[in-house]
């Protein structure tokens, strides 16, 4: 999708505050971490304790899938699924297999999404967490398949499905197969929905292109993290098309909330409680007991 190109281009852009590149450059490695937004330097340990939210300016750092899950689910409850699926190189793109391999080693994931089941404050859920450190969270066959299987597991076990999205869109190197993953995840979601089951989509920075234009936008409830970049087309593509300067907050979570595209923007510190409450309110008999 065109959006992928746009995100690449943004790496060179230093003016915009909501760009994925900034966060990407600031994956904490050392003892101290500098906030890309307010430049405050925080002990990495303290930052992690604070759910990777800058204590000074509230900037939400990008999280890995594992970090996200450990901050969300009850300790030790997560059981991952389909870690054995491996991407192929269906169009024979030079260097693609190596790139996937390198990102796999870097992230410890088999692909750009981690899926499984676990307990959210004692309640069973099926969870998928996309990881933008793996090929920018782009969706190819394996990402589509893992998400589809996670949805099906939720359908079979009659459980809520929660996804944290973070993706530049469809993965170009798998061509139209990537595009079709949008339809594949959708047919699975329809079945889940027909069973009267809950689907919550949590859109995190960045959620764009084909992922934004499929499962990310059709939760029974759509939630986003503050300042997350969310959109169909990339800012640069739009600027070139409409030939006008876009507002600073264009395609941020807050912008989408203003335009009626989201149910809520939820701070990371409240995410676990909010999701847990939503799940509880969709569980028969749970409200009376709670």
């Amino acid at each position: 999708m065109a959006i992928i190109r746009d995100i690449f281009k943004r790496n060179k852009d230093s003016k915009e505050a909501t760009m994925p590149s900034k966060a990407a450059k600031d994956v904490p490695e050392g003892l101290m971490t500098k906030c890309p937004n307010c430049k405050e330097i925080t002990l990495t340990k303290d930052l992690e304790k604070n759910n990777k939210v800058c204590p000074k300016c509230d900037h939400h750092f990008k999280m890995t899938a594992h970090e996200r899950i450990s901050g969300l689910l009850d300790a030790g409850s997560f059981e991952s699924m389909d870690d054995h699926l491996k991407s192929e190189n269906p169009l024979g793109f030079p260097g693609y297999a190596e790139k996937v391999q390198a990102d796999s080693e870097k992230t410890g994931l088999n692909e750009a999404v981690l899926t499984g089941s676990g307990k959210l404050q004692g309640q069973d859920i099926v969870l998928a967490v996309m990881d933008s450190h793996f090929r920018m969270g782009s969706m190819g066959s394996v990402v589509g398949e893992k998400i589809t299987r996670a949805i099906e597991t939720a359908t079979d076990r009659k459980l809520p499905f929660i996804i944290f999205t973070a993706s530049g869109g469809a993965r170009m190197q798998e061509g139209v197969l990537s595009l079709m993953q949008m339809a594949k995840t959708s047919v699975a979601l329809k079945r889940h929905s027909n069973e009267g089951l809950l689907f919550v989509s949590v859109l995190t920075h960045p959620t764009t292109g084909g992922v934004s234009a499929s499962f990310a936008s059709v939760g029974d409830i759509n939630i986003a993290e503050p300042k997350a970049l969310i959109g169909f087309a990339g800012r640069r593509v739009i600027e070139q098309t409409v030939r006008e300067k876009l507002p600073e907050d264009f395609q941020t979570a807050e912008f989408l909330l203003d335009h009626g595209q989201l149910d809520a923007v939820v701070h990371r510190a409240s995410m676990q409680n909010t999701l847990s409450t939503i799940v509880r309110l969709h569980t028969k008999g749970a409200v009376a007991n709670g």
Binding site: K190, S212, G231
Partner: peptide, 27 residues
């Protein structure tokens, strides 16, 4: 060539409109 990449399209939920069709067509 594709869905229109414009400001108004984003404001009115281009992503949701496409995504909704995918899910509803499935049923």
């Amino acid at each position: 060539k594709g869905a229109y990449p414009g400001k108004a399209a984003e404001e009115r939920g281009q992503s949701e409109a496409i995504a909704r069709n995918l899910v509803e067509m499935a049923g």
